[in-house]
Design a protein around this nucleic acid. Sequence first.
DNA 1: AACCCGGTTCCGATATGTGAAACCTCTGGA
DNA 2: TCCAGAGGTTTCACATATCGGAACCGGGTT
Lengths: 272, 272
Amino acid sequence: MNVENRQSGDGTVGKALAVLDAVAAAGRPVRFAALLEDSPYPKATLYRLLQTLVSQGMLDLDPDRGTYSPGLRLVRMAHSAWAQSSLAPIARPHLDALSADVGETVHLAQLDGGAVLYVDKRNAARPVQMYSEAGKVGPAYCTGVGKAMLAFLPEPELEAALARQSWHRFTGTTITDPDAMRVELATIRTEGVARDRQEHEPGIACIAAPVLGPGGRVQGAVSITGPTDRIPAAALEAHIPRLRRAADDITRDLRDWRFPDEREERHDWRHA
Amino acid sequence: MNVENRQSGDGTVGKALAVLDAVAAAGRPVRFAALLEDSPYPKATLYRLLQTLVSQGMLDLDPDRGTYSPGLRLVRMAHSAWAQSSLAPIARPHLDALSADVGETVHLAQLDGGAVLYVDKRNAARPVQMYSEAGKVGPAYCTGVGKAMLAFLPEPELEAALARQSWHRFTGTTITDPDAMRVELATIRTEGVARDRQEHEPGIACIAAPVLGPGGRVQGAVSITGPTDRIPAAALEAHIPRLRRAADDITRDLRDWRFPDEREERHDWRHA
DNA sequence: AACCCGGTTCCGATATGTGAAACCTCTGGA
DNA sequence: TCCAGAGGTTTCACATATCGGAACCGGGTT
């Protein structure tokens, strides 16, 4: 499971970001030694990189325990990232509406180098513990949103994306090879809707529709998800028209919208 | 070596991050020229930095318009940052409960170098939404959460924090100088609750309570906010016990909790 | 055609980052 | 008490990645 051909090795910056990722990926505060363990960099180099990142506020160093964790500056930056990504803020009101209408969990996702990145979410009135959160990533080949987006990818990119799937068999219905997937994608393309028939998690089903941008490019996908024991397949199917409408509404807004024009806004480069 | 003496000038990494911030702060896709305008770096240098950041996935470059915007990798990283910050994930269930009980907007914030960083939020009506609001920053001296945290800061840090407030008079009730603030903070300290009496926005009032960590250190603050025209002051006051309980619950969980132990988890440093 | 402007590339000088190794400073044996 | 080892920090001579002035491109405008 790798990501783009982002060689961690372009420049010092690349290395620093790789370290940052490593800390983030650890999922909990990590010690220097633990990082060194898996790091291709020599002790001193890693140490210096960490120092820099801490001094930059990208990492927090707990001085007592000697552990590193992602810093708050990251959260601040991410807010901007989210707020100005073209898709998420525009889709927001439509997700609210969709969520209110159907009362089930809804997701908004984007494709990020072969994987699915969830960028927004509304919980069902009756919440079920699920693995997804905004900012989380998941597989594309066995999720509704993933397949919805793959289906509308131009051939060369599809090729690349398929090559990066792990094809791990999560459940009995998981599609586990590119050929079967291409068949499935053709169906999705004609229907305009993708279904996850418990392909990722047993007991969890979902329907998803793509959001297309200018030139028919996929920008993302919306989905409605629910536990199979509470929602019979037919009930989920019944939501399809509403789901499609939400996707289309977002698509339309996306086309009409342009960033509010030219406010002269300055940013301080130097911090006292 | 603590507070924000984050010179944009330690190493290439520092510069790169400054550029990243600049793009994020712009709030919309920016052109090379616009960045160059405000940048202390020469054309070629800025160009190279941007190139690196794009190749790293920290920035997106729209090739048609030639504009840069924050990349998805940032969102991914930020999710980890949020998920493993000591405060936010632990506080989450308590915010849910508080929100459900009082039915008003609630906030969770942390102090980030003199400013208030909102890390979670529940809206009065709508269900959970994540990065839409989390990640925003606000002033400390005229918000409930801000004052609640300032009140429990040890003297040297308080000094530093007060020195960084802008003391802009937003409304008639805004406290606009450090001396008056110190008086206010003393009251808050004895009461255990901070009040925002429309000091930031007219028509918006709030009550806030601090979340303390080991050794009495402030870790954050929780607040209940509402429009004065819908919620009379007395009604807000009535929520104080519930608010305090929420803050205390979080404080307790915070003390008891430790990261789930030692799962050997590896991270790919090199991407093919 | 001449000009300008935003963006991209070159290339030598040098500031920067590199990493092996030495050096701390605990902590837990013996 | 002393030793051994692990985890973390600092040093320093060396290589190279970074810097930035200047030249270059391409396409709009006068």
